[in-house]
Design a protein around this nucleic acid. Structure first.
Lengths: 218, 218
DNA sequence: AGTGTATTTATACGCTTGCATAATTAGATC
DNA sequence: GATCTAATTATGCAAGCGTATAAATACACT
C-alpha cells in the first residue's frame, strides 16, 4: 500500500530546438562550474529542469551532447569575433585591430569561457572526432586571421607573400591566445583594456605596420 | 569448493620514493593517453604493475596522487626551462632565446603537459588555495621572463624602463604561452622547430632587438 | 632458521554513472 | 471532448568508481 507517493513531475512540451538549446546551456553551466567531471546527465537534467531520461531522447549518447556543447561554445566565440568585424570600419588595419580588441575583451575574454575551453581540451586528446572538430575550428580561426593580416599588409603597402602571412598568422594567433589566457586567468591584475592595447602594440611590431593611422596615402 | 584458484600475485618491496615516482609516472601515462578521466586508480595501478590498494598506502586519497602528479609536471617544466638557462651562453640575448626555445620544444611543449594543465584549471577555478598557488606560479614565470628581457634590452643598449619591461613581459609571455598551446594542440601540423623560430622572430620584433647576433659592441 | 613488521595483495562495500525501458501525460487532431 | 501520438517522467540495471579493511608475504634483523 503506497501512501503519500510523490506526485509525478509536471512538464510542458517544448520544441525540439528549444530543448536542445536548453540542454546544451545546462551542460555548459556544469562544465564551467565543476569541469567536465561535473557534467553528469543527472546534473545537466537538473539544471535544465528536466529528468535525466529526456537527454537521451534528444542526444543518443552523452558524448554527442558534450560534443554539441563544445561546438556551440566554439561557434559562439567565433561568431562574436566575426560580429566585431561587421561593425568595423573599412580600413583593413582598423578591421584587424577591431578583431584583436574583440577577442581580448568581454565577453570573449572571460573566465567562464576558459573554464569551458579547458574542460573540453581533455576530450580533444582522447576523442578523435573531437580532435577533428577542434582542428577545424583552430584552422578556420587562423585562416580568418591570415586573411585579415594579408589585407592589412597590403593596405600598408607591404609585401604579403603566403609563407610570410602564414608565419604572421601563427604568431599573431599566439599573441591573441596567450593574452586571452592571461586575461581569463588573472583579469583583475590588468588595467581595463591593457591586454588589448598590449596585443595591438605587439602585433604592430610583428607585422611592422601601424594598425591605427590611416597611413601611406600615396 | 574452490578449484584452480589463481595464484596470488608475486611482488617485490620497493623503497617509498621509488614507488611514489612509479605511481606518479603511471598517472601521467594515463593522463597522456586518455585524459584525466582515464586516470582511474585501477588503470594507474595496472600501469605501475601494482594492485589498486597500494595506491592508498602511499597516497591517502586519489586527489592527492593527482595533485602530486600535477606538481611533478609543473616542477619538471620549470626545472627544464631553468636548466636551459644554465647551459646557455652568457649573452643575455642568447639566454632569452634559449629560454624561449626550451619552452617551445620537447619535452615542455607536449600534449600531456597541456592535458594536465587544462585538467587542473578546473580545480584552480574551484579551490582558492589552488588559485593562489597557480597565480604565484604565473607571476614567478613572468618575473623571470621580465628579468631576462631587461637584461637583453640593456645588452642591446636599449632603454629598459620598468613600465616598458612589464608590458614586454606580458606580451612575450603571451607569445610563449600561445605558441606552446598551438604546439601542444596540433604539433604535427608544424615543421620541427618552426614554432620556436616563429616565437623568437616575433619576440625580436616586439622588443626591437636581435636575439641572435652579438651586436652592439661599442 | 625463526620472528616481526612494513609492504603488498585481495576482497568487498557503497555510491555514482550512463543507458535502457516501461509508464504516464500534454497537447494537437478530429 | 474523445483519441492518438510524441514528449516526458519514472524506475531499474550493470558497470565502474574510490575507498576501506583483512589477509598474505617479502625482507630485515637476530
Amino acid at each position: 500500500m503506497k501512501l503519500n507517493s510523490a506526485p509525478r513531475k509536471s512538464f510542458r512540451r517544448e520544441g525540439e530546438d528549444k530543448r536542445r538549446e536548453d540542454l546544451i546551456a545546462a551542460t555548459l553551466e556544469c562544465v564551467a562550474e565543476r569541469g567536465l567531471a561535473g557534467a553528469t546527465v543527472r546534473e545537466i537534467a537538473l539544471r535544465a529542469d528536466v529528468t535525466a531520461g529526456l537527454i537521451r531522447y534528444y542526444f543518443p549518447t552523452k558524448d554527442e551532447l558534450i560534443g554539441a556543447a563544445y561546438r556551440a561554445v566554439m561557434n559562439r566565440m567565433t561568431v562574436q569575433a566575426s560580429d566585431a568585424l561587421k561593425n568595423a570600419e573599412n580600413d583593413p588595419r582598423a578591421r584587424l585591430a577591431a578583431f584583436v580588441k574583440a577577442n581580448l575583451g568581454q565577453p570573449i575574454m572571460d573566465p567562464y569561457n576558459l573554464s569551458l575551453w579547458a574542460g573540453f581540451i581533455t576530450l580533444v586528446h582522447a576523442d578523435p572526432a573531437m580532435a577533428m572538430a577542434h582542428r577545424d575550428g583552430y584552422l578556420a580561426f587562423r585562416d580568418e586571421l591570415e586573411a585579415l593580416i594579408r589585407e592589412a599588409l597590403l593596405a600598408a603597402e607591404k609585401p604579403a607573400l603566403p609563407n610570410h602571412t602564414r608565419r604572421h598568422a601563427i604568431a599573431v594567433n599566439a599573441i591573441i591566445d596567450g593574452l586571452w589566457l592571461e586575461g581569463c586567468l588573472a583579469g583583475d591584475i590588468f588595467a581595463d583594456g591593457e591586454l588589448a592595447d598590449t596585443g595591438i602594440t605587439a602585433i604592430e611590431a610583428v607585422l611592422g605596420i601601424s594598425l591605427k593611422a590611416e597611413g601611406g596615402a600615396t
